[in-house]
Design a protein around this nucleic acid. Structure first.
Lengths: 90, 90, 90, 90
DNA sequence: CTGCCATTTTACCGGC
DNA sequence: GCCGGTAAAATGGCAG
């Protein structure tokens, strides 16, 4: 610990408050998201399915990134420069 | 689902994208929070202690909320109004 | 998985069954709890209020725990032992 | 509410304590279950897969019960007595 | 049958 | 780099 009861106390307090503020904003966004789900539900969509879709899209994106990372690795290993995106073929 | 292949597709897409956007912002805030922890750590504070403090503060606040809820419940059970001031209802 | 189709199958089955057994008991207790709530309701108590009280008590207890944890963390950070009494160490 | 501050208080306390006791036991079982998962993990099994299996088995069992319930309904509708299991015909 | 709450499960983050 | 614990998300159950 830095300095119990000294100047560090004020600094710690500052850090804590910054974090709490950010967490509040985060909670606000979570609330917004819930609202959107609710609205979608009101329009006849099933939230559970929607969540699945979003999860899937995220994973596909992650896979894509992983693939690109792997590609970069291979290319680096081969001594080839980074080709512009959109030119990869399978 | 509302209408597979119909106009609902566009609507669903819109909902999904709104959510994804919000989630992105949320992830951004999470990153910010991590940064603050890192900065604090760099100044000599222990993240574990900080998290504990924040958790404790949140719980104290939650306790307060719980107590109020309990009070409201009791008052409702006793047939007392506890309406917010200025809120008239017919 | 350890060994598909080998002896591991029996082992897995054993784990699964142990868990299922425990879950059954757990479900039994949940049923018991529901019964108590029902009985209380029959005596004129409001389950919602009861739940709130129980939640509050649990949180107060949790707060206590958190405070102790925090204290331990501080003491550890300050290099103080906080060993249980009677626990000698060389 | 029954009687704020009267004899009901003792009764309420009793109910609360019974519930808290049961919840404690329930928590104990949850801990046991976690232990089994841990043990299984130590033997090389993946907890996530195990959970999936257990969920599946439960659903199958639920389906079976649903089927039996449905069968009972049909039989009742047909004015037929409860036949011993294994004697169902379509 | 809808909304709320508890529980459970998954994902993340820090420690060893 | 993995593991353990901790926080968030999500699912399921319950009351109204």
């Amino acid at each position: 610990m830095a300095d119990v009861g000294g100047i560090a106390g004020a600094q710690l307090r500052s850090f804590i408050e910054r974090i709490e503020r950010l967490e509040e904003e985060k909670a606000g966004l979570a609330a917004d998201i819930r609202e959107v789900y609710a609205e979608a539900k009101g329009t006849g969509f099933d939230a559970k399915v929607m969540r699945q879709i979003i999860r899937l899209r995220k994973m596909e994106q992650a896979d894509r990134q992983e693939l690109e990372t792997l590609l970069d690795l291979y290319m680096a290993a081969l001594g080839m420069a980074d080709l512009p995106p959109g030119d990869s073929e399978d």
